[in-house]
């Protein structure tokens, strides 16, 4: 296993639980694999669907990732970070199986966006929450317009909380490129966002 894959975030505590599951897997106990599946399947599915909105294909790929982990359990070296490892495997599986259509983020469906921290139906907050909705929409739209690789970098850094080193490992590019892609993406989003946002604020201001 490449040593690059094993960088940890400073202060990140390694999941000894995962290492325990791994020991079980290595000893041939499927319960270890099941535990790992139970723990990460939701995240992996959601991530996969963000890469490619094809339910069946994403599920197939998840299946293969776990089957291969099982199949090669004795030849695989130590895996330090299972979350990173599984994301990387799934990402590559999907990339191998899918064509060029990736990272299509449907932006029409903002109500289903994760978080919605400020959306509140109380009347007093209605306008405020509408502004927040507009903000989220504007950002989602800006994000949707980014080139695939920029979307991908932002997704890992902002939504999956991976470090620059980990993203570089997942995507197979150097850390500097990750940084550059992220910077370009944010510049684009900011430009789009501050423009839209100013208009929205003015609109509500004059109402």
């Amino acid at each position: 296993m490449s040593s690059k894959a094993e960088h940890l975030i400073p202060g990140e505590t390694l999941s000894s639980e995962d290492q325990f599951f791994w020991q079980m897997i290595r000893s041939g106990d499927p319960a270890g694999l099941e535990s790992l599946y139970e723990k990460y399947a939701d995240e992996l599915f959601s991530f996969g669907m963000n890469v490619l909105s094809e339910n069946e294909l994403v599920k197939d790929c998840i299946q293969e990732v776990f089957l291969e982990l099982w199949k090669y359990k004795s030849s695989l070296n130590a895996i330090r970070n299972f979350r990173l490892y599984l994301f990387k495997c799934l990402r590559n599986k999907i990339y191998n199986e899918s064509g060029k259509r990736r990272w299509i983020t449907p932006i029409d469906d903002v109500s289903k966006l994760k978080g919605q921290p400020y959306v509140d139906a109380e009347e007093t907050n209605l306008i405020a929450s509408q502004i927040e909705m507009e903000k989220q929409e504007a950002l989602a739209e800006a994000y949707g317009k980014l080139p695939d690789r920029q979307k991908e970098v932002i997704h890992y850094l902002f939504f999956e909380s991976f470090t620059y080193e980990q993203v570089s490992d997942i995507m197979g590019i150097n850390v500097q490129s990750v940084y550059t892609l992220a910077w370009k993406a944010l510049k684009c989003i900011k430009k789009h966002y501050s423009k839209g946002f100013t208009l929205i604020s003015l609109f509500y201001y004059f109402q």
């Binding site: 994760k114 921290p117 927040e132 989003i189």
Partner: peptide, 27 residues
């Protein structure tokens, strides 16, 4: 920007999740 930048969370239906594990298990 950080607080409002969000992504679509896709729910893995628990039934689908179980079915997929059964498939993995049998393979």
């Amino acid at each position: 920007m950080l607080l409002n930048l969000s992504y679509k969370k896709h729910q893995f239906q628990s039934e689908d999740k179980t079915v997929l594990w059964e498939q993995i298990r049998s393979n």
